[in-house]
Amino acid sequence: MTERSEITKTWKLFIGGAFPRSESGRVAPVKDLTDRSGGKALAYAAQASRKDLRDAVEAARAAQEKWAASSGYLRGQIIYRLAELLDGRREELIEAVRMSGRVGKSKARTEVEVAIDRTLSFAGWCDKLDSVVGGRNAVAGPFHCFSQIEATGVVAVFAPEEFPLIGFLTLALPAIACGCSVIAMPSSVEPIPALIVAECAPSADIPPGVLNVLTGLREELVPVVAAHRDVDAVVASVEPEMAKILQLGVAENLKRVRLVDPQAKFLEDLAWSSPSAFQAVTEVKTVWHTVGL
């Protein structure tokens, strides 16, 4: 009997709920970093162009208002469903994390399990952020005054190069939970765990355009995000020189920027799923209404 050869998969982009190739036609190999000889291509992934990024921003913008207007309860159920689906592909995720060559099987397992549990945690935040961070303001006048927490809008996320699953989810999910739409750039060395998340998104009923995932070259995409006037916020775990380019983009349209240390350990710290996770991706809206007969 002849040995069955493997099907080497080409992972595509995830834009507006569809899985297109890059309009540029470019693909890049994803390497098995556990392979000491260094060269073995595990798979291929599309390499997004600036045009793909602009398309993703358009899809994200089109989806955002409706997503933000949906109830926190609904968003929570959808993110919970995502956790269920990720749990179903747990072994595949562990293998993909292990292929990054950074951790052995048992640490890869821990990373995946903590990541899925953190997904649950963010599911729970959807209908609680207002209660914890917002609330009634006791003003000195005849007014009912309260502050509610709203989504900033369209958010670009640059996930860390390490921690390819938990880093990606820890930075992308808070934005989605609070009603933003996201264009997420996974680890460029090990994008597969994030691409598995993308494949789960439609089945979890995340509406098209709410999560977009673009694999590609960071040095190409960072300046495009920084200059894009329809990106409202950026969450990024990138090296200082790229962080600076993103910060300079603030001058463009006052986009909000949250920078996360690229050396950060994304495991076991409550702060990752605390209200501080929602910096840059939420706005406080204070509403006053007169009170009187």
Binding site: N137, V139, A140, G141, C145, W288, H289
Partner: peptide, 10 residues
């Protein structure tokens, strides 16, 4: 109302 401010209100 308009232009109301209060230290308790963000």
């Amino acid at each position: 109302t308009f232009n109301q401010f209060d230290p308790a209100a963000p």
